[in-house]
Simulated scan of single mutants.
Amino acid sequence: MSTHPPFRKVFEGIATRSQMFALFNRHRDKPGVDPLSGVPYASEWFEISASEYHFMLGLLPPLFQRTGMFGMSEYKAGNVTSVFFAIRIRGRERWFHGFCDLSDKPSPDAMRAAIIAHETGAVDSMTREEKLEAIWSATHADFRGIAGETNPDAWPPEHHGKRTILVYTVGQGTTLKLLQDLTDEEIDSRMPAVHARSRRKGGNDAKPS
């Protein structure tokens, strides 16, 4: 049985070059993450522009290349490398980056299919995990954090290293809450704001981790 994580979109809008490189390293300082495994990155994807696609294609000789797809010869870590896609969706050419674990040989084609399935659906087709990633990416750094990073005593040890986000709760005011513990209502209330931000300047004002 495959143990690979599900494909998940981690940024709303079209990432600029600086955002793209930030997303390439978004797990770099995450506590408890083995930077040599590549596992935290495997199966993550986001949209880029044509210029970034062609910039990366010209950066290094590709590991492999075929119509609408190429892989980077420089691996992120372990068996995980960047794969770039040019995909026509509903008559419009679009470009994407994804991290694929090439120990699972069909993963680039599976990711391409997952991107098409996601982008031809509505917000309602997003999984809970994808929505949480979108909310995290669109939330300003001042309003999110890592449990136990600055005040270890504020969180039980089992929650240290998990992502937190500021939420407003009636009767309690603004408090920090684990991202993974957001209710469906809290997620849904944040999704319209996420998508509104992604439409402005192609998502340029979103802040990846």
Rank of each mutant, 00 (worst) to 15 (best):
M1W: 11
H4S: 15
P6M: 06
K9L: 12
V10K: 03
V10F: 05
F11E: 01
I14Q: 02
R17F: 13
R17M: 11
F21W: 11
F21T: 11
F21D: 08
A22P: 09
N25P: 02
N25S: 11
H27Q: 11
H27P: 04
D29N: 14
K30T: 12
K30F: 08
P31I: 01
P35H: 05
L36D: 15
L36E: 15
L36Q: 15
S37N: 00
G38V: 08
P40W: 00
S43E: 09
F46N: 01
E47T: 07
A50M: 11
S51V: 09
M56K: 12
L57F: 10
L57Q: 04
L59Q: 08
L60M: 08
L60V: 07
L60D: 08
P62R: 08
Q65R: 15
T67A: 14
G68W: 05
E74Q: 15
Y75E: 07
A77T: 08
F84G: 05
A86K: 14
I89P: 07
R90C: 15
G91S: 06
R92K: 11
R94M: 06
R94Y: 06
W95R: 03
W95Q: 04
G98I: 04
L102Q: 01
S103K: 13
S103W: 13
D104W: 12
K105T: 12
P106A: 03
S107V: 13
D109I: 01
D109Y: 06
M111D: 00
R112A: 04
A113W: 04
A113E: 05
A114I: 01
A114S: 06
I115S: 01
I115E: 03
I115T: 00
G121K: 07
G121W: 07
D124W: 07
S125N: 10
T127W: 04
E129L: 13
L132C: 03
L132F: 04
E133G: 01
E133V: 06
A134H: 14
W136S: 02
W136E: 01
T139D: 00
D142R: 09
F143D: 15
R144Q: 06
A147G: 00
G148T: 10
D153Q: 14
P156C: 02
P157Y: 06
H160S: 01
H160E: 01
G161Y: 09
K162Q: 14
R163Q: 09
I165Y: 00
Y168R: 05
Y168Q: 05
G173L: 00
T174F: 13
T175G: 10
T175M: 11
K177V: 11
K177T: 10
D181F: 05
L182Y: 05
T183R: 02
I187Q: 01
D188C: 07
S189H: 12
R190D: 01
M191V: 06
M191R: 03
P192F: 07
P192T: 09
A193R: 12
R197D: 11
R199L: 12
G203Y: 00
P208H: 00
